[in-house]
Write a protein that binds this DNA or RNA. Structure first.
Lengths: 358, 358
DNA sequence: GGCAGGAGGGTAAGCGGTTTCCCGAATCGG
DNA sequence: CCGATTCGGGAAACCGCTTACCCTCCTGCC
C-alpha cells in the first residue's frame, strides 16, 4: 500500500474526478454559485464576474456534470425508454429513427429495450426503466391481445405513472394510455377497395399472428371493406403466418393450394408480402400482377427493391415515432383524458397490382 | 422505539415513493441491513430471519431501487452507450440487435445514440454518455478518416476512459481502442477473386464516400486483388457515390457511360448494389448476370428480395455487436494492450454473378 | 438618515443508496 | 475458563448536485 488517505473529512479531491465542488474551489466561489451558473438553478442570477470565473474554471477542468447525481437531486432524469420488439425489423427501426430525431431535438437520451416478442421481457424492461427513473416510456409495436398479459402490462404502466413517468403507446396495446396509432383498419379497407376496383372478387389474405392487435385491426378493415361490398371473407381465404418473409411464403403456398382461383392476395405486412411474391412467382409460376395481384402493408423500403415493386399501404413510421415523443413532451394540461393521435395511412399503388384477369 | 431519533423535516414518507428507508422501517431493520439483503452489498451475510422480513417488506411495498442513487453511491452504472450513424439503416439495425441481445444477457441497459452521420453529434453524444456515467460505449459504424475529427474523437474517448469508462469500436475509427472489425479488405479481395474466376477482366467499382474508413479498406482490398493479378484499378473504373440505393444507381449509370465495356460491377455495399441493379436492368436494359455481373457487400436482408438475388460478401453483423459487448465485459487483464477482434467475412454466391460473356 | 426591499452569495439539508466502522454476542482455541 | 475471533447488525459518512433559507450589501424612497 503506497498511500491510504484516511482523511474522512477531507477526501483527496486533487486527483479525483472533476466535481462541481472542484470547479467551485477553482473559481473561488461556493458550490451553490457554481451550480447556479452551470445549470441555471432556481432562476437566480449570478454576478457577471463570478459567472465568468465559474465558466472558466469549468472549461479549464473540463467539468462535466454527473447525471445520476442530478437525477437524484432533481428527482427527474432526461432519459426516455423505447420498447420495441426487435430493432432489426425495419418497421421498428424506422420508428426508432423518428424517436431518435425527436430525442435529439429535445436533448433527451433514449434507452432502448428490445423484447424479441417476449411479453415477460416487456414487463421486465418496464421495471428496469422504472428503476432507471426514466422520464417516460414509449411502447412501440403491436400489443399482445392476451387479456392476462394486458392486465400485467396495465399494472406495470400504472406503477410507472405513479412514479411520475409518462407513457405513450405506438399502436394499440389495449391499455389506457396516450396513443399514436396508424389507421390500420382504414389502410386495409383502402387496399381491398383498390383491388375491388381492379375487378378482383376472389381475394386471399395472408394474416399475421392473431394475437397481435395490429393484425386484428387490419383484418377487421378487410372484413369491413368486403362486407360493405356484399362479400364475406371466407375462412378458406385467409391463412395465418408468422410476420416474416418465410411465413408469408408458406402461407401463400397454402392459400393458393386451397383456392387456386384467387386473383389477388393481400398480405398484412410487407415482409410477408415479399414472401408471397416469391411464392407466387418462383414457386407457383404465377405472374404478378398478370395472373395474381399482390398488396402489402407498411411500405418498408424493400417494397421498392422487389420486382414488381409492391403496391402497399404506407405508414408514416418515422413520423409515428416523432409524434409519440410529442405526446410525451406535451405536459398534458387535462390529465386524465386519454389522448389518441390517429395517423393517416396512404395507399401507394405500384406495380404489383393490376386488373383481374378474365 | 418505533419512532425516529430526530424527526428533522420529517418528509412525509407515508405517501411518497417507496425507498429503501421505507422498506427497512417496514421490516423493522436498519437501512444498512435492507441494502445488504436487497443488493447483496459488500459480501456480508444477513441472518435468515431478517433477510426474510426484508424480502417480504420489499415485495409488499413493491420496492424498486433508484438506479441514479445507486449509480451515485457506487460510482458505476449498468448502462452502455451505443453510437451508430442511423438505426434505420439495416446495417446498424443488425448490429444493434446483436448488442441488445448481449445486453439482455448481462443485465445491461443500452442508451442509443444516432448521429445521422454528423461528426459533431458523435462528439456531443460521447459527452452526454460520459455525463450519464455510462459504463462503456460502443462506437459503431464506419469512422471518418478526417484527421482533425479523429483527433477530437480520440480526445473525447480519452476523457471517457479517464472517467473509468470502457470503449469498444466496431470497425476502424482510427483510434487506439479495443476494436472488433470485419475483414473488409479480405471480403473485397474475395469478391474480386470470384469475378476474376468467372472470367471478368473489366470490373467497375461503385465506391462509397471516400471519407469513410470502411470504404477505404474495401477499396484497398479491390486494388490488392487486382494487382495480384497484374491489373491496376483504372481511375475511370470507379465512381464515388453516396452509400445509398440512389447513390448506387446514379454512380452505376455514370460508370457504364464512361466504360460501356464493363462486364462486372462491384458495389461496396448492398444498398448501392441494389441501386446498381436497378440502373443496369431498368435504366440500361442490361441483363444481370447475363451481360453484367454484380456483387454487393454486407449481405443485408434485401439481397434476397431482389431478382436476381445478389451475390455479396456476408458480414456477421449481429455477431459483431455481440463481440463488441464481449470486449466491454471482459475486464481486460492486460490493460494497455489494445485488443482487436477480426471478424471473418464470407462470399455468398447467389444469382447476380455469372461467367463473363464472350 | 433610516429602513424596506431586492440582489447576490454562502450554508447546509436533503435526494436514495452503499459501505466503512464500531459494537455486542456467540464461537473457538488453548 | 478466558481472551481472541467471527458474525450479524446498526450508525453514519459519504456520492455529487440542487435548492431552501439565511445573511450581507446596496439601492431607492420618505
Amino acid at each position: 500500500m503506497a498511500s491510504t488517505p484516511r482523511a474522512r473529512k477531507a477526501p483527496d479531491r486533487s486527483g479525483r474526478a472533476v466535481t462541481l465542488q472542484r470547479v467551485a474551489d477553482h473559481a473561488g466561489v461556493s458550490i451553490a454559485t457554481a451550480s447556479r451558473v452551470l445549470h441555471g438553478g432556481g432562476g437566480r442570477a449570478v454576478g457577471e464576474e463570478l459567472r465568468r470565473r465559474v465558466l472558466a474554471a469549468a472549461a479549464e477542468l473540463n467539468y462535466i456534470p454527473n447525471a445520476p447525481a442530478q437525477a437524484l437531486a432533481r428527482a427527474r432524469t432526461s432519459v426516455v425508454g423505447l420498447i420495441v420488439h426487435d430493432v432489426g425489423d425495419p418497421y421498428f427501426a424506422a420508428i426508432a429513427t423518428g424517436v431518435m430525431k425527436a430525442a435529439r431535438e429535445h436533448d433527451l437520451m433514449v434507452m432502448l429495450a428490445a423484447t424479441f416478442r417476449d411479453p415477460q421481457l416487456e414487463l421486465e424492461y418496464l421495471r428496469r426503466l422504472r428503476n432507471q427513473r426514466a422520464r417516460a416510456v414509449l411502447l412501440a409495436g403491436s400489443g399482445f391481445a392476451d387479456p392476462a398479459f394486458v392486465g400485467s402490462l396495465a399494472e406495470s404502466l400504472g406503477r410507472f405513472v405513479a412514479d411520475g413517468g409518462q407513457v405513450a403507446c405506438i399502436g394499440d396495446h389495449g391499455v389506457e394510455a396516450d396513443t399514436v396509432a396508424p389507421d390500420n383498419r382504414g389502410g386495409a379497407e383502402a387496399a381491398i377497395g383498390h383491388l375491388w376496383e381492379l375487378g378482383h372478387r376472389r381475394i386471399g389474405v395472408v394474416t399475421g399472428p392473431s394475437g397481435l392487435t395490429t393484425v386484428r385491426h387490419r383484418l377487421e378493415g378487410v372484413r369491413r371493406a368486403l362486407e360493405r361490398r356484399g362479400q364475406v371473407l371466407g375462412a378458406d381465404c385467409t391463412v395465418e403466418a408468422d410476420f416474416t418473409r418465410e411465413g408469408g411464403r408458406a402461407a401463400t403456398l397454402e392459400l393458393l393450394a386451397r383456392r387456386p382461383d384467387l386473383t389477388a392476395v393481400f398480405a398484412l405486412n410487407d415482409g410477408m408480402a415479399v414472401g408471397a411474391l416469391t411464392a407466387l412467382r418462383d414457386d407457383l409460376g404465377r405472374s404478378v400482377p398478370g395472373e395474381v395481384s399482390l398488396v402489402g402493408f407498411d411500405d418498408l423500403p424493400c417494397t421498392l427493391d422487389v420486382r414488381p415493386a409492391l403496391t402497399t399501404v404506407r405508414l408514416p413510421l418515422e413520423r409515428t415515432g416523432v409524434r409519440a415523443m410529442d405526446l410525451i413532451l406535451d405536459e398534458r394540461v387535462d390529465r386524465g383524458s386519454r389522448r389518441i393521435v390517429e395517423l393517416e395511412v396512404e395507399l401507394v399503388v405500384r406495380d404489383s397490382t393490376g386488373p383481374a384477369r378474365g
